[in-house]
């Protein structure tokens, strides 16, 4: 029991289950899954589908945070790559051509690589504090996205592109597979090579890593590039969802949700150990929360507050120091033999 309780995913899983249960009690149809036109539908599946962009952004963010940094520009990068892809497709005579959609994606990814490299240079080479360095692109990036869309909302009519957001594969939403593929890829990239350990080392103790002969600049640079690429894929999804690109609102504030997801997942903002599985759970919790707020008809005025309260609660229960205070203060001051079982 206590081994289970000490597992680092125990609390996030518990919170997710609690949220789902609350929904199911409030609305019994919540857990129902139906087959329609060969596709599965249901609230739970919706949650997973809608959380896919956040999962992607948060995975990239996980690596950046593990190096001891932070990437505030991911929302803007979402908007920029979504805008570039949509703009390119909108210029094509045949918007449904697979080739042009693929070209659009390559363009979007290419631009993201450049933007990620920009962040990477500012942080790793020039040595600007990550929060400031990425703030530049966070702010300027929105303008860049606006430039691409010429201040308009670009609407496209491309079914291959739309698939990324709302299509299906093997009865399940396509977006789930994209998120899954990126997760597997990143997991392999970090855990099959020594990259993961080296990132954790740099984030855990930069000076010790330097003295151990780690070229931390390269590693940090790489983390920002990966983060930007993840954000770009999320940007495709977000714009594909609505078949349009809006430089102003695509991916707005997603960086904050992503940071939250990472923290809920157990990766420390100070850097060091990172956990993709925790991050994914964190993203799912945040999306479930958003859905819950809508489903329960909580008024928009209070919904943000509600979200904030839940998030604070999640972070607090995860903090060992906080749990300690509760389990430790209750018994008499002298003997602390009896830990409160939970």
């Amino acid at each position: 029991m206590s081994a289970l309780k000490n597992h680092r995913l125990f609390w996030p899983v518990l919170v997710l289950v609690a949220l789902l249960t609350a929904n199911a009690i409030y609305r019994p149809s919540f857990l129902a899954v139906q087959m329609r036109d060969g596709h599965l539908y249901g609230s739970v599946i919706d949650i997973v589908r809608l959380s896919a962009p956040l999962i992607l952004v948060a995975l990239g963010m996980t690596l950046v945070i593990a190096t001891g940094g932070i990437d505030l520009s991911v929302g803007s990068i979402c908007a920029i790559s979504g805008a570039v892809a949509c703009f390119y497709i909108s210029q094509q005579p045949d918007q449904n051509s697979l080739a042009s959609v693929l070209t659009a994606l390559v363009l979007g990814l290419g631009l993201a690589l450049v933007l990620g490299a920009w962040n990477g240079v500012l942080v790793a080479i020039i040595g600007i504090q990550p929060i400031i360095a990425t703030l530049i692109l966070m702010v300027a990036g929105r303008g860049l996205a606006q430039l691409i869309t010429e201040g308009q909302i670009i609407t496209i009519n491309s079914s291959p592109y739309k698939t990324i957001g709302v299509g299906h594969l093997l009865t399940l939403p396509f977006a789930i597979f994209v998120a899954l593929a990126v997760t597997v890829l990143l997991a392999a990239l970090t855990r099959r090579t020594a990259l993961g350990m080296i990132i954790e080392s740099v984030g855990g103790n930069a000076e010790a890593s330097r003295l151990a002969g780690i070229r931390s600049r390269r590693i940090i640079f790489l983390a920002y590039v990966i983060s930007a690429v993840c954000a770009a894929i999320a940007g495709f999804m977000l714009t594909a969802n609505v078949s349009s690109a809006d430089g102003n609102s695509a991916g707005l504030w997603i960086e904050l949700d992503a940071i939250l997801a990472v923290v809920i997942g157990g990766t420390s903002l100070a850097g060091g150990r990172f956990f993709f599985s925790g991050t994914i759970l964190g993203a799912l919790i945040i999306q479930t929360l958003t859905t819950t707020v809508y489903a329960m008809d909580i008024s928009p005025q209070t919904s943000l507050l509600f979200k904030a309260v839940v998030v604070i609660a999640v972070c607090l229960i995860q903090a060992p120091a906080f749990r300690d205070k509760f389990t430790r203060r209750k018994p008499t001051a002298v003997s602390q033999k009896e830990q409160v079982p939970a």
């Binding site: 350990m197 954790e200 080392s201 855990g204 103790n205 000076e207 010790a208 890593s209 003295l211 060091g272 150990r273």
Partner: peptide, 9 residues
């Protein structure tokens, strides 16, 4: 502590 080990690892 500061120049040698990475405590997390």
């Amino acid at each position: 502590r500061t120049e040698g080990l990475v405590g997390d690892l």
